[in-house]
């Protein structure tokens, strides 16, 4: 069977190539994978994992780390917050069938037209010394409840000696949903392994899942009209319509994502 039996232009991308591309993105756009409070963002060598990034990042003054607000301390009225970082240190994709990334039992087996995303996420917290927290606590004494205003976002980080870090392995099952107007990715399931108690695992999974649903996946939605482009002044390429011959487009199978396009002149 020819690649183009049901289309004019075919593109097949194997998961090994996709994973290499992810490594290049990680290398050339590290700020998409590393988030930290301002004090850590400007001293990224202090993060949980050393960041290996491309020389062009510095050459073109791109950020290595995306800056995030300090973690507020509930009930504390000062302007300081806790420093932290979140790093996606590894990201890998396994297109159906399931082979290069064994799924945890909760997600196994990987269904047709689906892919597994495995990520290693490291989180670090700048835990302040006891002497410093005592000092900050004393500074807060003497204020009455009348002094209390609406809490403000912290503007500085409480000094700390080193980050306290832990790393998690996160597995997600993702499918591609094609509607009449757009092409988007859906998160079918998510699992964080080896966390106890179960409630903590559920909370973390809920949080990561919500971040993916509300932050990541909407950015990966493509309008089908945006996938129509001109190859030359006279040749236009557009996704091949769904039909009996092309039930999925893009299709995820045989460790590849396959994209079919039709050409009009």
């Amino acid at each position: 069977m020819a690649y183009t039996d049901n289309c004019d232009i075919f593109g097949g991308f194997h998961e090994n190539g996709f994973n290499t591309i992810i490594q290049h993105i990680q290398h050339q756009r590290p700020s998409l994978f590393n988030y930290a409070t301002m004090d850590l963002a400007s001293n990224h060598e202090m993060l949980c994992k050393e960041i290996d990034f491309h020389e062009a990042v510095n050459r073109f003054d791109n950020p290595v780390v995306s800056s995030t607000p300090y973690l507020p301390i509930p009930g504390y009225d000062g302007t300081s917050g806790i420093s932290y970082c979140i790093q996606i240190t590894e990201a890998k994709i396994d297109f159906h069938p399931e082979n290069s990334i064994p799924l945890p039992p909760e997600l196994h087996p990987l269904g047709p037209q689906k892919m597994t995303l495995k990520a290693k996420i490291c989180v670090g917290l700048g835990c302040p010394d006891r002497e410093l927290t005592d000092k900050l606590s004393n500074e807060g004494k003497g204020r009455t409840s009348n002094d209390k205003k609406a809490p403000e976002s912290p503007t500085t980080g409480i000094p700390f000696r080193r980050l306290t870090c832990f790393c998690l392995e996160v597995y997600g099952v993702i499918n591609v949903i094609r509607s009449s107007d757009d092409l988007k990715m859906g998160l079918e399931g998510l699992e964080i392994v080896d966390i106890k108690p179960e409630g903590l695992e559920n909370i973390l999974e809920c949080y990561v899942s919500t971040v993916i649903h509300l932050s990541l996946l909407p950015k990966l939605t493509l309008a089908l009209s945006d996938l129509v482009f001109e190859l030359t002044d006279l040749i236009t390429l557009a996704p091949t319509p769904i039909s009996a011959a092309v039930p999925f487009n893009p299709a995820i199978a045989q460790d590849e994502v396959k994209i079919m396009m039709n050409l009009t002149t």
Binding site: I9, H14, N16, T20, D233, L234, I235, L263
Partner: peptide
């Protein structure tokens, strides 16, 4: 196995050649 395969049908190649 190659990591990327791109294919153009004979008709597509003709259209591309015509433009060329």
């Amino acid at each position: 196995m190659p990591q990327i395969n791109l294919a153009a049908s004979e008709n597509a190649f003709r259209a591309i050649f015509d433009a060329y």
